[in-house]
Write a protein that binds this DNA or RNA. Structure first.
Lengths: 188, 188, 188, 188
DNA sequence: TGGTAACCGAGACGGTACGTCGGGTCTTGGA
DNA sequence: TCCAAGACCCGACGTACCGTCTCGGTTACCA
């Protein structure tokens, strides 16, 4: 495989590219984001982007992987309702925030367009959080035995995606709480 | 605004365009689909497309509106579990079918990219089905009073979207049935 | 042959491109001349250049064909020496003028790089002048019968090219006159 | 100017570069010849080329200087016609040979593009041969006194360049002989 | 029933970005 | 210190589509 030697890679350029990508994503639509603009903003040749990434999708995936990857912690206060409320409220807030949801939008589009990237998005960005919630659910005595934990976690996050994408309702704290109640009812 | 006179519209061209759009969508990605290709395939000038639609998104939305718009019926056998299973199984099957899910993918991308189209997608394509399910739920004595019907319906469809987009698990009949069980448990 | 329909061609653009090409050729080297710059200067899309020409070489060939193509007249005063002096002095002056020789340089380079263009350069730009001189020589009683007219004309122009390319001496009027004397001596 | 110390120069690399340049010149056009390709073919870093030469023009100039530089001898049999025929026939043959004329083409292009290189090409490659012919002419009693020897030599070589560049006729032995006759007529 | 105004197919146009190529410079590791 | 290797910034390449704009030709309404 004649891919470039990562040892020779210029760290300064790498950082500049990821930073530029995130900046531009905040200023325009994902569809309007261009590799050319990223290169220009980063003060970098286009080739340097294409040398290390397959396209803009891969760049922003990397950019976001870098910023995330730390907030996987999920509290276990012993009170499942409280813990779930915390995480679901946070998630709902993130989707409600136009700034943050721009990146989610970008990733979702890329997820739908490129199978290879979809895998990476799933594994590197989403999985950690989902796994944390799964672990919490598994440890909870309130959860009825026999419940499929994968489905349980989708019961919590799926509706948020749905409402966010289709804009069928507000993404508020009370919505989050209501969602938790429904889920708890399903799982107990 | 002197928008074109629909009376003069060439029905043959309209059909050819919608058909070509669907054909091409089956052959390539939505991202690779171009207005130029649609026009060529339909044997039509590009202007004829731009005269009647805002872009490729609007075209495929119309194309899909035409094919759908009929299967909104939802049976009311008196058995809520059976009725939900029917509709959820059908939905899951649609998402599992690569052919059909290509169009869903296209619509979802457009939904995420263009607010104006998102509204239309929601209202013309999704709402009818969601409304039918809502009506069924509202009429069901099994559903605990006080449950937010909007949330209830999202509890059914949200997880499917989630699993489909993130490819976190299989989209099978037994998955559909399990989902119905969880939802019923939440709503009763 | 799926080449574009010349009937649809935009005359304004065509002119702007040729003019821009000549302008730029006066400002920089032929090697530094780019299609992109021509397009920009002409206020034209690059595609419009590539639609009608094979590259920058073809463009400047066209540009020069347009400006030339008229000065083919050669006087016949009855005095061969005088007539040849006139034409050779003019040619030498053209090669001596840095402005004019820039275009000759460009054409010569292209001639050496691209066989197809070379033919056109020869036939459309050079041949008319050479033919005029040939006709004059053929009509001259001073010229010894049996002289190959093609070689005769090369005897006049070849040395000019040689001196110009290799910069082995000045390109002055007296040089021109000396050359005519030598040629006359050879032909009589 | 701290130009590199030639003492440290790697002779093996130097040779490999010049050889590669000549090889590639035989395989493609001069315009398509790239420094990158030379470096790759020679198994050498690009920097090693740029350290010692100004660009591809300088490299091939050096390559050709090496191969030439020896055939400057011009016979003096006492028979001017015979001697000129020998040298002009050889020159015409060289221009007629596609293999050899490729290098001439390259040099001519570079001569037209780069003044500094033009000087070197003239002095190191062409001058020796021209000087040899000039010496022969100067020594010839057949040549009419007062003839400008510089012009005389151009009268011999100029037409060949002209015919070769413009492809206006065949480059054969009989053409060479005819040219010699014309020149002799001019000089006597 | 002939005029005229809109539609239509075709496709050229000014643009923007694509992904690639090569130029010439700079950096790294090994000899 | 030089070398091979090759990453880097840069700029141009030639292509693909965008959405707009003619261009004739054909409908289909209206006088």
């Amino acid at each position: 495989m004649p891919s470039p030697d990562p040892g020779r890679r210029n760290e300064r350029s790498r950082r500049a590219i990821l930073a530029a990508a995130l900046e531009l994503l905040g200023e325009t639509t994902y569809a309007e984001l261009t590799v050319e603009a990223i290169a220009a903003r980063a003060g970098v040749g286009k080739q340097t982007i294409y040398r290390w990434w397959r396209g803009k999708g891969a760049v922003i995936l990397d950019a976001l992987s870098e910023t995330a990857a730390t907030d996987v912690a999920l509290p276990d206060t012993g009170d499942l309702r409280a813990d779930l409320r915390a995480v679901i409220r946070a998630t709902v807030a993130e989707f409600a925030d136009p700034r943050l949801s721009a990146t989610t939008r970008a990733l979702t589009i890329e997820t739908l367009s490129d199978d290879a990237l979809a895998e990476q998005v799933r594994d590197r960005l989403l999985r950690p959080q989902l796994d944390a919630v799964k672990a919490r659910l598994r440890a909870a005595p309130e959860v009825r035995p026999g419940v499929d934990i994968d489905q349980a976690v989708e019961l919590l996050f799926g509706p948020i995606y749905h409402r966010w994408m289709l804009r069928t309702g507000p993404l508020t704290e009370s919505y989050a709480d209501g969602l938790v109640e429904l889920a708890l009812a399903a799982l107990r």
